[in-house]
């Protein structure tokens, strides 16, 4: 085979051309890859590593602070700072996120009509968090709630429970009262 190529008079320029084209291809590939990597690194620059937002795990007081009722009592004390509602029924306490599942506005608790009503697009939720009117596609989210050793209720916003994924069955999504 090697003899055949050396004997062919046209083979030498062809080889040069091929190696030239290969060089061009390799060169452009490296250039494109480097450009893409640079672009990705620049895009990564838009995502900060540190955030200056309130802590996600905090204590809200003993269960006695939240007297329950049959229909569920909605406590709004922690709405403005921590973005949660504490709902206490006769036998359990759970924590609802104040973020509307439609476009993230903060709904208002209308105690007379016993519903959360979102001012942005009119979504309505029962005190259980279940959506029943308006464009919201799914119920409000619940946060992890537990009893700390010092007897206070501890809320962990980094763990959330979504009804439509069946996560409300999770024992950590509510605090059973004995």
């Amino acid at each position: 085979m090697a003899d055949a190529t050396t004997k062919n008079p046209t083979s030498a320029p062809q080889d040069t051309r091929r190696s030239f084209l290969e060089g061009v291809a390799v060169g452009w590939t490296i250039f494109s890859a480097a450009s893409a990597a640079g672009l990705l690194a620049t895009a990564r620059f838009l995502f900060p590593n540190d955030l200056f937002e309130p802590p996600t795990k905090f204590k809200i007081g003993p269960p006695s602070r939240f007297p329950g009722s049959k229909d569920g009592t909605v406590n709004e004390d922690f709405k403005s700072i921590n973005g949660i509602w504490i709902v206490s029924t006769a036998d359990e306490i759970y924590v609802l996120s104040t973020v509307c599942t439609h476009l993230g506005c903060t709904p208002n608790w209308l105690s007379a009509e016993r519903k959360f009503k979102c001012p942005c697009h009119g979504s309505g939720f029962y005190s259980s968090g279940i959506n029943f009117e308006g464009p919201a596609p799914r119920p409000l989210e619940k946060y992890k709630v537990s009893l700390a050793p010092d007897g206070q209720i501890e809320v962990d916003k980094s763990t959330k429970y979504q009804f439509e994924l069946g996560q409300w069955e999770d024992p950590n999504s509510r605090l059973k009262l004995a």
Binding site: K79, S80, I81, G83, T98, H102, L103, C105, T106, P107, N108, C118, P119, C120, H121, G122, P135, P137
Partner: peptide, 28 residues
């Protein structure tokens, strides 16, 4: 600005209100 109190109603800038009206019928 307060992130806790949502004014009622809360509207996007006026030139996006056509889109906001669409949100009544379609998901975001």
């Amino acid at each position: 600005a307060s992130s806790a109190r949502t004014p009622n109603p809360s509207k996007a800038p006026w030139y996006f209100l056509g889109l906001q009206e669409m949100l009544v019928y379609y998901d975001p």
